[in-house]
Design a protein around this nucleic acid. Structure first.
Lengths: 265, 265
DNA sequence: TAGTGGTCTAGACCACCCC
DNA sequence: GGGTGGTCTAGACCACTAA
């Protein structure tokens, strides 16, 4: 295996019906590079739970042997997974499945920063947790049918004793069966950590739309502010593996002692 | 040069006083990898204007020869520069210095998107352009002394005929000497394109802080809205090479038919 | 056809971590 | 000492672009 011409377009598994190897008349669909195929295979293992959040995945050499490719190819696949925050490399130790139970990951999805001092987790006050049928707009964003069961959560978050965020969340009822106010209240740590550990759903990406609005009566009362105080309104959809939407979150942020921080590159 | 042990910690230029090569007792400062040094050298050439925005930089092989390293090392350096949007690779053609004169780059720093339809550039209405002395807060953010000369620009941007953004900008007076209302008005294309082509300052990164506020009288008049309408208030500091701040921009965004879009990864 | 970036390999050595 | 990821090299071939 050392002096043969490399890369006869070997498919590392028997997954796809391989065809058209070295021929020059490859037409449109364009084959994906080996390392992309490896990346897809590793992602599938992550998704299937073969390696759990926080655990170490096999070493590069081991994966190279398993897939019958060079270490360099595995490396490039893992590089991309690390760039997408699906895994985390630790020199000298190994490569680990990313998890929401970590300092670093705490503020990955919450961009609201205190004007002064360092970011720190808030204190949750749950207002309501219930099962309901998904309204049309929620169903559309979560890729469900209108009327499908969803879990609804409403909470207020306090920072330094100041109520700052009021948010409503909708989660698919099937995947989050058994999520109750008690479970939420007794759980210490980030909510996405709970979802990951207890419900096997890991959020890996989100999109957010932000507007400015005026506080309505109910929200003003919860945040202990005057009606018509300007607030940031965020609508966030979070996705798990396979770009599947699994959470809709609508938040109102009080920006008197906080601001939404963003880096533009 | 083929069978010698590689990497005797050769410095590609005579820049730093090389020391401590293979010895095992390297103490704290930790040497940067070769490709990082190459990256720094390429960045310096970009900054000095050796290759201008839009131009092609030398090929990987050529740079490898120039720096006396392998093509793979140059490649890794350029990979990072491409990830930071300093250069753009085009397969089969070459690697090009990134520029703000491009479709792709138009909306890199403006995250305000129309609720319906595709993003498109707005129409500028310049309200005021003048030289002034930097107030303390502006000076601090631009890394100037209080009272240093700055260019002040105020404009309204219209989308589909609707005034949507009112923003104020401050630029260092020295770097932007000769920037007048006429120059701004006659220039077609993105403002950062003008700054890049006419003033040799390329914005490569920015940070943004966003809050919700109520429209004051003056802004309400400019945007043709009621006083106290909620608006997004953005404070953006843009940086050029070497993390040097070169623009402060304070904008108010009307979010009735637009929203601020963000991707969380 | 020649030149560019993109992929893949194989092997060496380094830096870091833990036993 | 032995394992992990990180760097660096050298050389082959592929895919795309332009003359």
């Amino acid at each position: 295996m050392s002096s043969v011409p490399p890369n006869s377009n070997n498919n590392p598994t028997a997954a796809s019906a391989g065809s058209a190897a070295g021929a020059s008349t490859n037409s449109s669909p364009t084959f994906s590079p080996l390392y992309q195929q490896i990346k897809a295979l590793i992602t599938k293992s992550l998704q299937s739970g073969e390696w759990k959040p926080g655990e170490m995945i096999p070493s590069e050499v081991e994966l190279a042997n398993r897939f019958k490719v060079s270490q360099g190819t595995v490396r490039k696949a893992i590089d991309e997974l690390a760039a997408e925050n699906l895994v985390m490399r630790k020199q000298g130790k190994g490569t680990f499945v990313a998890t929401h139970h970590e300092e670093r990951a705490q503020f990955r999805f919450l961009r609201l920063m205190p004007d002064e001092g360092v970011p720190h987790p808030g204190v949750s006050q749950f207002i309501e947790v219930k099962r309901m049928r998904a309204p049309a707009d929620v169903a559309r964003l979560l890729d469900l049918k209108s009327g499908d069961a969803v879990i609804f959560i409403k909470r207020v978050q306090h920072f330094d004793g100041v109520p700052t965020i009021v948010e409503e969340m909708w989660l698919p009822g099937i995947a989050f069966k058994g999520l109750t106010a008690e479970r939420l209240e007794e759980y210490k740590g980030p909510m996405y950590g709970l979802f990951e550990s207890e419900f096997g759903t890991r959020m890996i990406r989100a999109t957010e739309k932000i507007r400015a609005v005026c506080a309505a009566e109910g929200d003003a009362a919860l945040l202990n502010i005057a009606v018509h105080t300007p607030l940031l309104a965020s609508e966030r959809v979070s996705f798990t593996y396979g770009d599947k939407p699994v959470e809709l979150r609508r938040g109102l942020y009080l920006t008197e002692r906080h601001h939404y921080h963003n880096e533009l590159n």
